[in-house]
Write a protein that binds this DNA or RNA. Structure first.
Lengths: 169, 169
DNA sequence: ATGGGCATGTAAATCGTTACATGATTCT
DNA sequence: AGAATCATGTAACGATTTACATGCCCAT
């Protein structure tokens, strides 16, 4: 349901294409959502039907016609309403934690590998985030990057603890 | 896809009913997944067909017949295989962060309310988790509670920072 | 020349939530 | 008396993923 508002929110800042939206999601909002083309385009079409957005088609040579969407006043009203509604709880699925919980009964070495892999991934994410965070003006973007940084740093500390406990057992 | 393995993993420890599985999820695995009856029962039926689990029906008075599921060797093999496969990335949706990103353009007071609400919820969660964590033997359960505790504590610190920045702007 | 970025989309499959339906028992 | 717990499930809807399909432009 909230992909509607993701789109509406981004278009409230400036008109853009579906491609631009996806880019923005990947670059700054991936901590919040992971919407892919498969949801984005159909949702844009629906919003258009409902008159929450409008579109300008811009012909280009050698590329598909670019469709620049912008929000309507109706769409703005919907966005504002959503912002006031109670926020729905985080929806999260961490297969990693499930495996952590089950791995031990099966094999100690699987458990260690699992933790090591998680550590590597988290480290890589931290690197990316850190370089992203350095050159940022928009405070909102900073908050989000900061949120992710804090998450993964805390997770690294937790990984240390768990790995120690396993090693000393 | 991973609800299969959630079920298989729990049944590998001991036979239980669909109801028991849901309880276990709520009580100790909610940081990892949120599977509800609507997925759990149909998935159990499918696993039964595929011979990954078996069932013993136990008649009870005044209640539906209790169906106690247990894992088969075939199911165990599947579980072990999953544990070795690369772990799929966390799947997350945080409407809260989306709203944070958009609220400012619309209204400063919405932004403050949003943060205050999040703080209250996080505090409440921390309380619950802390009391849960005190009386725990199983180290796996401790790790998971600990993971959640670390997440929410770090989030509280982040909330402090963001609220300060907003207040001083 | 090869890979990445630009730019649109669709189809099939599956995943998952929510609400509904039922009803006895036990705790407060 | 009323709420929570035990215990099963379905139906309708909505959300989401993944892979497919197309093809130029630009930088290395």
């Amino acid at each position: 349901m909230s992909h509607r508002y993701l789109i509406l929110g981004l278009l409230a800042e400036q008109p853009m294409t579906g491609y631009d939206i996806r880019k923005q999601v990947k670059e700054v909002l991936s901590t919040a959502t992971n919407a892919s083309y498969g949801t984005l385009y159909p949702t844009l079409h629906k919003l258009l039907q409902e008159d929450a957005v409008q579109v300008d088609e811009i012909d280009q040579e050698g590329r598909p016609t670019k469709k620049v969407y912008r929000i309507t006043t109706h769409g703005q009203a919907e966005l504002r309403q959503w912002l006031r509604e109670p926020t729905s709880a985080d929806r999260i699925k961490r297969d990693f934690l499930l495996k952590l919980y089950f791995a031990q009964q099966v094999s100690q070495s699987d458990l260690q590998r699992l933790l090591a892999e998680r550590r590597d991934e988290t480290e890589a994410l931290l690197d990316t985030l850190q370089s992203q965070g350095e050159s940022l003006d928009d405070p909102r973007e900073k908050w989000i990057i900061d949120y992710a940084l804090m998450l993964y740093r805390a997770e690294m500390a937790w990984l240390d603890r768990v790995e120690n406990q396993i090693a000393s057992a």
